Simulated assay, not measured.
Amino acid sequence: MNFGSSGNFRRQIAQGAPFELYLSADERYVQALYEEGHTQDEGVIYAIGRLVWMQQAGRGDLPSDDAPLAGVDAALEAQESGTNERIALANPEHAPYGVAAQQTLEHAGRWEPTEALRVLGENVSQAAQFALSDDARGGLVAYSLALAPSLRERSEYVLIPQSWHEPLRQRMVLTNQAGDVATAFYQWLQQDEGQAILRTYGFSGE
C-alpha cells in the first residue's frame, strides 16, 4: 500500500505503474483515468472529506468555529512584527486537499497576503507534519489526519466550513491490473464495516 498525493498517483497509473486499486481525494483524477482506458469502470465515491485548521496543542489560542482562520490572521500579525510563522498546506498543483486549502484562503481573502508564509507539502500527510513543526503556526489539512492517533495527542483543530471550498468527493476505482485481493478490498470498503471505519476518521458518505 502506497500513500501520496492523488495527482502524482494519477500520473503514475497513466504511465503504467503496477497499481491495482486507486483511492483518490479528487474524483476527477479517477474520471480522467477511466476516459484514458486505465480502469475497469468509473469507480465509486467512497467518502466525502473535510478540511481543518490544525496546529500544535497549546500553540496560541485555538481558532473557533466562528473564526476558523484566526491562526492565519495571527501569523499575518506576527509577520508585521518581523516574525515568520509558517502556514502549511499540501501543494495545490497535485494534491486535492491543497486545492481545498487554496480555495479556503481565497474565500477568506487570505491567499495573496499569505504568499510569503505558505509552506507546501508534497501531499497532505507531509503538510500535516509541517503544520505541527516548531516554526509553523499551523496548517490546513485533512480532518482524517487530525483524528489519526499519531497526530491527535499533540495537535488541536477546528473544522473549516464546507461551503468555503469545493466538495472533497473521494472516489476509488480498480485498475485494469486489479487482482482478487484488490477487488475484495474495494468491495469491503463499500460495505457497512468499511464505511464505519471511515466515519471514525471524519469521512462521510454520499
Rank of each mutant, 00 (worst) to 15 (best):
T114R: 01
P63H: 11
T83Y: 08
L89G: 01
A78E: 09
A67L: 05
R59Q: 14
L151Y: 13
W53H: 04
M1V: 13
W111M: 05
T104Y: 01
R28S: 10
Q187S: 13
L145S: 06
M1G: 10
V44G: 02
Y34D: 04
L62D: 14
R59T: 06
D41S: 07
R50A: 12
W53Y: 12
E156Y: 01
S204Q: 15
A196L: 08
G121H: 00
R137T: 06
Q195P: 00
N2P: 15
A75I: 01
R86K: 14
G138R: 01
F3L: 13
L76R: 10
L76C: 05
E35S: 07
V173H: 08
A17C: 12
V158F: 03
W111Y: 11
V30D: 00
Q12R: 15
Q15T: 09
D192L: 06
L132I: 10
D192I: 07
Y201K: 14
A88V: 09
D65F: 10
S163D: 12
H107D: 02
I197T: 13
V30C: 02
E93S: 10
R50Q: 15
E35T: 07
P68L: 02
A74K: 13
A100C: 04
I48Q: 13
L76E: 05
Y34N: 07
T39Q: 08
E153Y: 10
R199D: 11
F9R: 10
S6M: 01
L21G: 05
D73N: 10
R28C: 01
F19M: 11
E193G: 03
L89S: 02
A88Y: 05
L117Y: 07
A74D: 15
V119M: 09
L76V: 05
F185D: 13
G60S: 01
D26N: 12
I45V: 14
P18G: 04
A70R: 09
E35L: 09
